[in-house]
């Protein structure tokens, strides 16, 4: 039996692996995709102490190498269930079952989709969830951003420098994001606000050609855009573990700063936990706390 199984090899999970290994616990990290988590999409990290500039890829590689060198084991399998039998927890993947004394869930979150027909089919053919990743493909073209939070506002500002025209589509007439960013956007001649509207249709041949938006009065308008950037929030990836952790209304795992859940021996760390600030540094901090708590739990 492994001492600690960590689900998710993003910054939170890999930091937990480092802390757990340094406390001499055996560690198995289960990851559905590839180590690194969503930070690998960030070209340049400028707000993590010590490194003034580091790419998300390099950051992920460094943390992975550090955890590996300390003896953490990584397996690329998706955890689909946690079974709690008191002192033993069983983590189930499509291929295997693994037993551990403690489990840390550090699965992060995924992009929320609009839910419009053909959205999935057009990902990579005009539909994107990451402006900094895909913005460069829309140089001098018209694009639309959907959303009302900081991500949507910052995406629109980023794209305003690249694209010829940026439509910012929001279902309300006020933004949740920061006023300062809204003001900056208002200064941009190539940004047009499309308030009280939702995307109702994507028109495409082989790639996106236009989007249909419908406003609250039912008026339909077609925007000729080759790119649609969806920034309507994220969904925490906790659904598979609802039997052992409590979820809030938005699906986040309920746990205080000590990362403990309602099940003794099951901890949560990172973006999938209820918290106010979701940053790289708060994710790694959670990893440290969750691992320390898990070690304490096993030793007691």
């Amino acid at each position: 039996m492994t001492d600690i199984i960590i689900i998710g090899a993003g910054p939170a999970g890999m930091t937990a692996a480092i802390y757990a290994r340094r406390a001499s616990k055996s560690v198995l990290v289960l990851e559905a995709m590839s180590y690194g988590g969503q930070i690998i999409n960030t070209p340049d990290i400028e707000n993590y102490p010590v490194a003034a500039h580091i790419s998300g890829f390099e950051f992920a590689q460094n943390v992975y190498n550090q955890a590996k060198a300390l003896g953490a084991e990584f397996k690329f399998e998706k955890a689909v269930e946690i079974r709690d039998s008191g002192d033993t927890k069983t983590v189930v993947t499509p291929k295997n079952e693994y037993e551990a004394k403690a489990v840390i869930i550090a699965t992060g979150s995924e992009n929320r989709k609009l839910g419009v027909a053909d959205e999935d089919k057009l990902v990579g053919r005009g539909v994107s969830y990451c402006a900094t990743c895909d913005g460069a493909f829309f140089r001098k073209k018209a694009v639309a951003v959907v959303g009302g939070g900081n991500t949507a506002l910052e995406d629109a500002l980023y794209l305003a420098d690249i694209a010829e025209k940026v439509y910012l589509i929001h279902r309300r007439d006020r933004f949740r994001g920061e006023d300062a960013t809204v003001e900056k956007l208002k200064q941009r001649e190539n940004v047009e606000f499309v308030y009280n509207s939702v995307v109702t249709k994507l028109n495409a041949d082989k790639k996106l050609e236009s989007v249909e938006v419908t406003d609250k009065q039912g008026n339909v308008r077609t925007l000729e855009v080759s790119g649609l950037f969806v920034a309507v929030g994220r969904i925490p990836e906790n659904q598979n573990f609802a039997s052992v952790i409590e979820l809030d209304g938005a699906g986040y795992a309920v746990a205080a700063e000590n990362c403990r859940t309602k099940t003794p021996g099951v901890f949560v760390a990172g973006d999938n936990r209820v918290k106010d600030v979701r940053q790289l540094v708060t994710a790694t901090a959670d990893g440290a706390v969750a691992a320390t708590e898990a070690v304490k739990y096993i030793n007691s």
Binding site: M33, S34, G124, V127, F137, K207, S226
Partner: peptide, 24 residues
């Protein structure tokens, strides 16, 4: 292509399949 990594499988000079993003 508007998003990378984009991996396309070509057979006989034609696109047979396409995968977008990091996948296992």
């Amino acid at each position: 292509i508007s998003s990378i990594p984009c991996v396309i499988l070509f057979k006989n000079g034609k696109e047979a399949d396409r995968s977008i993003g990091l996948r296992p």
